[in-house]
Simulated assay, not measured.
Amino acid sequence: MTGPVLADPFTVTDVAGRAVSFDKPVEHVILGEGRMIYALATIETDDPFAKVVAWRNDLWKNDADAYDAYAARFPEVKDLPMLGRLTDGTLQTETLVDLKPDAVLLPIGDKQAADEVGLEDMLNAVGVKLVYIDFREHILENTEPSLHILGQMFGNVERADQVAAYWDQQMARVTDVLETAQPEEPKVFMYRAAGYSDCCGTFGSDNFGLMVKLAGGHNIGSDFLPGYTGTINPEQVIASNPDVVVATGANWGHNEGISGFVNVGPGAAAVADDSRAALAKLMQAPAFTGTTAVADNNVHAIWHQFYTSPYQFVAVQRLAKWFHPDLFADLDPDATFREFSETFLPIPYAPGYWVSLDGKD
């Protein structure tokens, strides 16, 4: 008689450079950032929540429409415990232990806070693995490794390879063309979470700042910020005189007291006129009124959550068309995202991830 087939032990090297060993694929996981579901859903497409025992509340707060879409497809989502965050003190480390997970996934940005409270030692003491992934701080260095980490942990390495290969292929549709054409780079101001926070949040040389570079633009924030995100004053925006302004937006309706943001994201095509009006109002701020971008009506908004998901290739394609419309006339980022969603994601594709003041969305 043949006994059960046992999974082979394996070791992942997380994005913090830590080697973490497992006896078998995980069965009970805590998502230290709810928006990790964007990546996990590409690996565990049949039911990305099947092995999740709790998650941070940020998907619900920062992408209400995606939360609703996942909850409609997987009703158990509504019963998952929602956790706070280490970095702001709203998550008690004992809560993680009480949920009895096999592993806790944290974004690399939480590592300092985790180290300060001794989280790794605490979890090790009860046999829980701690793994860091990253789709935000170093997108070129960490997106594909993070996908591969998820593939190993959830026992679906081949699927992770497929997602990473698609990511590479779609990025190359922009970067290969730019490498050949070497066009002049427009000056671009990325207005981070426009309307959600005060002017003028933006991005340094990574995250959306790097996406601007990969799309053939010069990211103004990279001239001033040492990290991937930060704030510059309105006078610096005026002096830089961007040729293009791109605001990031989302459905932040679950955040109390927040208004004036540009609602772009899944399903937001239905409210495109309202989103365009919100974007136009934001451009009335002194930082923007005299800029070349506003004078030329070269002002756009794009889904903020591209900045913390493995879907950055879609944003790079959309940015490239705004920066170099003639060069990328045949590129259709909406079709790209639709194809990706139908191939790798369990929820229906719902357009609305960007909007432009000129109405040519």
Rank of each mutant, 00 (worst) to 15 (best):
D361F: 07
L345K: 12
G260H: 10
G260T: 11
N142C: 03
T90C: 03
G195R: 01
W354G: 05
A160D: 12
E44N: 12
T231M: 10
G195K: 01
G267W: 08
L105A: 01
D274N: 14
A293D: 02
G127E: 02
A50S: 15
F323S: 05
T202F: 05
G201A: 11
G249K: 02
F74W: 11
P107S: 12
T289Q: 14
D47G: 10
M122T: 15
Q317D: 08
G352C: 09
L150N: 06
T143K: 02
D176T: 14
E141G: 03
T11N: 00
E256W: 05
F261E: 07
Q152T: 05
D273H: 08
H138V: 02
I108C: 06
A315D: 02
P346S: 09
V244D: 12
D134F: 00
V12S: 05
A272M: 12
G265I: 04
D274T: 09
E116I: 08
T143W: 06
R18Q: 14
G217H: 03
G257S: 12
A50L: 13
V212M: 05
S275T: 00
V52G: 01
L327W: 09
D326S: 10
D110N: 14
H138K: 15
P226L: 06
V53P: 04
S146V: 09
N124C: 09
P325A: 07
D63Q: 11
G230K: 06
I149N: 01
G265A: 03
C200S: 04
F49R: 04
Q284W: 05
F203L: 13
G127I: 13
S275N: 06
G290L: 01
A193S: 13
S240D: 10
G249V: 07
D110A: 13
E179G: 11
V5I: 14
D102E: 12
I37W: 04
R338L: 13
A295Q: 12
V294D: 08
K360S: 14
T336L: 02
E33G: 01
Y166T: 15
H28P: 04
I37C: 08
E76L: 11
F74L: 09
A278I: 06
E158V: 07
M36Q: 14
G359Q: 03
W167D: 06
L83P: 03
M82Y: 11
G359E: 07
D110R: 03
